[in-house]
């Protein structure tokens, strides 16, 4: 369970990234965070694995305040929290396999990882992860030879190889076309249900949020302005979160029900 207790974050330049956030995210939930650009979605997500450090309040994961963690505890926390990025963040010159096995780094001794000495179970796990996102045939290709959607699937496989309890995804489909976006979201959703991994995704598109989320959190100017199950959400809710009328650009389109 993830609990934000009055969490605030002020960036060194004085920008208020988060303002008194109080939310609770339950194990296995699929949460989508929406809001306009600059609302603080990335800041919220990155607080959970401490890529940014909140400056006030308490952030509890499984009842431990992660804001108190030193570097050793932090690395341990991060092995349990997988992250997916808008730009996939693969090492482009390395093979798919090398990228995916790097999900095990946190569990592997430094020397062993430097010499690529991974136990058979880890190699099998990496391969199985690639199979789950249907990209095992690209195993030994260089990752910059893959399409954007394929690279994002490799990134999901890397996270799966980590065997995390939580997956954070910061705009995972913002660089992809609509059909590929749906494919990637479907894989995320599948993984969430099959492995019961708590999943928190930042999205721009309201139709996608509605289609894949269990629960929607709306942000504006660093504050949570909406929090509720997807069944309660309609277009008016989004207009309230965004503080303006919904436009065409807020939808990705291309899903089955349209």
């Amino acid at each position: 369970m993830i609990e934000f207790k009055d969490v605030s974050l002020v960036y060194p330049n004085g920008t208020q990234g988060l303002k008194n956030i109080n939310i609770q995210i339950n194990p296995g939930e699929f949460v989508v965070v929406v809001g306009l650009s600059g609302a603080g979605k990335s800041t919220l997500i990155r607080s959970i694995n401490r890529l940014v450090k909140p400056t006030g309040g308490e952030l509890l994961i499984d009842n431990e305040n992660i804001l108190k963690y030193g570097s050793r505890d932090l690395r341990k926390l991060r092995t349990k929290v997988g992250m997916i990025f808008q730009n996939y963040n693969l090492v482009k010159r390395s093979s798919v396999m090398k990228n995916v096995i790097s999900g095990r780094l946190g569990h592997t001794g430094t020397l062993k990882s430097l010499f690529n000495l991974y136990p058979k179970e880890d190699q099998a796990l990496a391969y199985r992860s690639l199979q789950r996102v249907n990209i095992a045939d690209k195993l030994y290709q260089r990752s910059d030879q893959l399409s954007g959607g394929q690279q994002q699937r490799v990134a999901i496989a890397r996270v799966l190889t980590q065997q995390p309890n939580i997956i954070l995804a910061d705009e995972p489909v913002a660089s992809l076309d609509p059909p590929t976006s749906h494919q990637v979201m479907t894989y995320l959703r599948k993984v969430n249900k099959e492995d019961n991994i708590t999943t928190i995704v930042n999205l721009h598109f309201i139709d996608m949020a509605m289609e894949y989320a269990d629960r929607i959190i709306g942000m504006r100017a660093g504050e949570v302005v909406y929090d509720g199950p997807v069944s309660d959400v309609n277009e008016a809710t989004f207009e309230e979160i965004y503080g303006r009328k919904i436009r065409d650009e807020d939808r990705v389109g291309g899903s089955d029900d349209e």
Partner: peptide, 12 residues
């Protein structure tokens, strides 16, 4: 783990 398949060796 449900399955335990090692990745195929790279063809060179």
């Amino acid at each position: 783990m449900t399955e335990f398949t090692l990745p195929p060796k790279q063809k060179k």
